[in-house]
């Protein structure tokens, strides 16, 4: 099947795939704006354009609750899938996800410390702590994995895994000691886009906006990495510099995502694989396509998480993994059968 798809899509131009994914995302955002209270209302989707005719509570619901939440899910989905695609390309390892350098456990340790210590710098205490710890973890892993002026990917991967385990133990310790604050930690670690606000949207917009152009400009170098580091080097790619820049920049956007939404699993791992199955390995297409699909996937996962058991809200991280894992297995089986 996928070969047929690939042939069909191969005939489409790159722009068309992106246009299609873009339209799907835009339509999804429109529809999600009309979903609330456990059902879809066309009127609510359209009413956004009649601001003056809305009551105060309708305005709050549409503009202060749904809109920032939709934008946040789109931004986080974009950040996670793009970083996933970049890191998988860089490490040449299909199991790599955006959290491979220990970023998620670093961010979680930051959140746990903020909750346990009771330090309060306003509502942004926990996101700020988790952002700083997530970034700090990345630099720690880069330092540990560095040998001379080189960044061997295997060492880096192992350093990331080791730091991840160490921090996981710290998180367990924190949870053990948490007592009455335990539920805050559990919720944070589960990952959710609840309580999305414009402040959170504005907080993660800059890191993600910086990431996009830089990452896209390295598409060709990432394509060279497909042939292995040595070949890439012989093709004139400054391998160490590319690795360093891409690791730092993708960590920046993942850290931003983790700080506002906790640990949302599976999006960053699976979306790039799905795109690869559909369009192939060319990073010039893979990166923007992953970004768009990732946004759509998280948008719909979050919309489901707030509608399935309405008015109870589920953690979106649970929804992405519950739906993502079986779908991914299905794709893998299909792909395998064709060979």
């Amino acid at each position: 099947m996928s070969s047929r798809i690939r042939n069909n899509i191969g005939k489409l131009k790159k722009a068309n795939v992106l246009l299609l994914l873009g339209i799907v995302l835009a339509l999804g955002m429109m529809i999600a704006l009309g979903i609330g209270g456990g059902r879809f209302r066309f009127s609510e989707m359209i009413l956004v354009f009649h601001y003056s005719s809305l009551s105060a509570s309708e305005r709050t619901i549409l503009f202060d609750i749904r809109l920032p939440r939709i934008l946040l899910s789109v931004l986080v989905g974009a950040g996670l899938s793009l970083s996933g695609a970049v890191l998988q390309g860089l490490f040449q390892n299909p199991l790599v996800d955006p959290y491979v350098l220990g970023i998620s456990s670093g961010g979680a340790v930051g959140a746990v410390i903020a909750i346990l210590s009771g330090i309060s710098l306003g509502f942004f205490t926990i996101p700020l702590f988790s952002f700083l710890f997530a970034l700090g973890t990345t630099f720690l892993v880069l330092r540990l994995g560095q040998i001379g002026h080189k960044f061997p990917l295997e060492t880096m991967l192992l350093a990331g895994v080791a730091i991840g385990f160490f921090f996981s133990a710290l998180i367990s310790l924190g949870m053990f000691l948490a007592g009455e604050n335990l539920h805050q930690m559990v919720f944070w670690i589960m990952g959710g886009l609840w309580n999305s606000s414009w402040k959170k949207v504005l907080a993660i917009l800059p890191p993600i906006a910086i990431t996009l152009p830089i990452v896209f400009s390295y598409s060709r170098e990432l394509n060279a990495f497909l042939l292995g580091e040595k070949v890439a080097e012989s093709m004139g790619v400054d391998v160490e510099k590319v690795k360093k820049i891409l690791l730092v920049i993708s960590s920046l956007s993942v850290a931003a995502c983790v700080s506002v939404s906790g640990v949302i699993g599976f999006v960053g791992l699976v979306v790039p694989h799905v795109i690869r199955i559909i369009t192939g390995e060319d990073h010039r297409l893979l990166l923007p396509a992953s970004l768009l699909l990732g946004s759509s996937v998280l948008l719909w996962a979050d919309t489901l998480s707030r509608s399935l058991l309405h008015p109870v809200e589920l953690p979106v991280g649970v929804v992405t993994s519950l739906l993502g894992a079986p779908f991914f297995i299905y794709l893998l089986r299909r792909k395998k059968r064709e060979r």
Partner: peptide, 20 residues
């Protein structure tokens, strides 16, 4: 306000605004 939910539970902020 949350009398229809079971035990301790998360709740959609939209619904809180609606139930005022």
């Amino acid at each position: 306000l949350a009398g229809d939910l079971n035990g301790y539970s998360t709740v959609d902020i939209e619904e809180i605004i609606r139930r005022n």
